[in-house]
Design a protein around this nucleic acid. Structure first.
Lengths: 231, 231
DNA sequence: TATTGCATTTCGTGC
DNA sequence: GCACGAAGTGCAATA
């Protein structure tokens, strides 16, 4: 990885056109050829960038560029798409290269898939005596996260989200509409399960007769690890 | 902006839990307090990060950490949400600080809004003799990008996208269903306009009687600048 | 200030 | 390999 702090301007041409006026920025050139242009603020998204696979070529600035103070040019091109990033460097304030090696990568825990798995193992949280039919129950408009049977013989469709928002309720409503027409499943009720349910979503769900279920991931995980399955 | 290359491990705890095993990485500490942890590959997304507003505190490692080789710890916390990032540093290979100053920011050209504006000015591309009714025509389920009248007195609803995908066709279909019920507008036809239309989207649109229109942004822009509006 | 919808989204997963 | 959906999404315009 090469790190350069430089006064530069940047032009991107590809899926759109974009321009960065002259200012001091960090140029991060990764070993896979990619380039990130970062300012000293904002979020993790660079001001401009080129994703791998791409190649960086150092160019001598033409006469016009030289006359306005450009001392060096980097052209980063994405072979396939034709996207191109042109960095015009006016002054280099820092330049260093580093060997980082491979990265073992991030281990995540607590994403929607984990919630869904845990709730499938702990369907009792949905209601007394309910039984799992299956996860990712397929329908014409996409899979329902969990489908369970209640003791009375009815069906419950469960939508699992990390953060429960209105569009999640809408999604579940569409499933309920479709599943309710199936005589093998009817009557079908809905449960909207999430770690955090937005007030607006809760109102909409309740209004539609959908029950809201707040999930405590840490607690569910504790039960999971505390009571390992025996078979 | 402070740049540190270090052998480190990272733990994130917040909306989810995540762990980065010991490896050599770039730690980018921006002047707004935010921290990015980058590896020497992947795309622009850091392996881990903390978004502003947040604060970084340097801590002395406890005895247990010291015994496994940790020489320094950075704790980055997001006041409001309680999110926390803990960086355990084992070895510092580079450490430099730089003054970058404010950034003038990115100037974009060619996003969906630009396409929509140009097509509104060049409605002739939609069909012979059509006239613009208005952009962002409001409906109960959201605004239609462009609403135009054809010479025969019918209405055309136009959905503009940079990249035409299936969900864009679905969106337009919902609008057509709603608008078609309005006697002032009926009959309403649909046009799906995008710089690039995915084959699947084209099939679905055609199947529903929606016409596909591929837009050449550069050409439209050329006409725009070549024939400036006189009023 | 909350909400909505786009993004040079990126990133995973299943087919 | 491609389409689909989630993301610690970020981000800007809007109501």
């Amino acid at each position: 990885m090469r790190l350069v702090i430089a006064r530069c301007s940047v032009d991107y041409s590809g899926r759109l056109s974009a321009h960065l006026p002259l200012a001091t920025r960090l140029l991060m050139h990764k070993s896979d050829g990619s380039l990130l242009v970062h300012s000293d603020g904002g979020s993790y998204k660079p001001l401009n960038w080129m994703s791998p696979p791409c190649t960086l070529v150092r160019e001598e600035p033409d006469e016009e560029a030289t006359s306005v103070g450009v001392i060096e040019r980097w052209r980063v091109t994405h072979g396939k798409s034709g996207d191109a990033l042109l960095v015009s460097i006016y002054e280099v304030l820092h330049d260093s290269a580093h060997e980082l090696g491979m990265d073992p990568g991030l281990q995540k825990d607590g994403v929607e898939a984990d919630l869904q798995r845990l709730l499938a193992e702990q369907v009792g949280l949905i209601g007394e005596g309910v039984a799992l039919v299956r996860r990712e129950f397929p329908t014409a408009i996409g899979p329902v996260d969990l489908l369970v049977r209640d003791p009375a013989g009815g069906t419950i469709a469960v939508e699992v989200k990390r953060r429960g928002d209105i569009d999640g309720v809408e999604q579940l409503t569409r499933y309920l509409e479709l599943l309710g027409r199936d005589p093998h499943l009817a009557p079908v009720r809905g449960v909207f399960a999430a770690q955090e349910i937005k007030p607006q979503a809760r109102v909409l769900a309740t209004d539609r007769g959908i029950r809201c279920l707040t999930l405590d991931y840490d607690e569910m995980k504790g039960i999971d690890s505390g009571a390992p399955r025996l078979f």
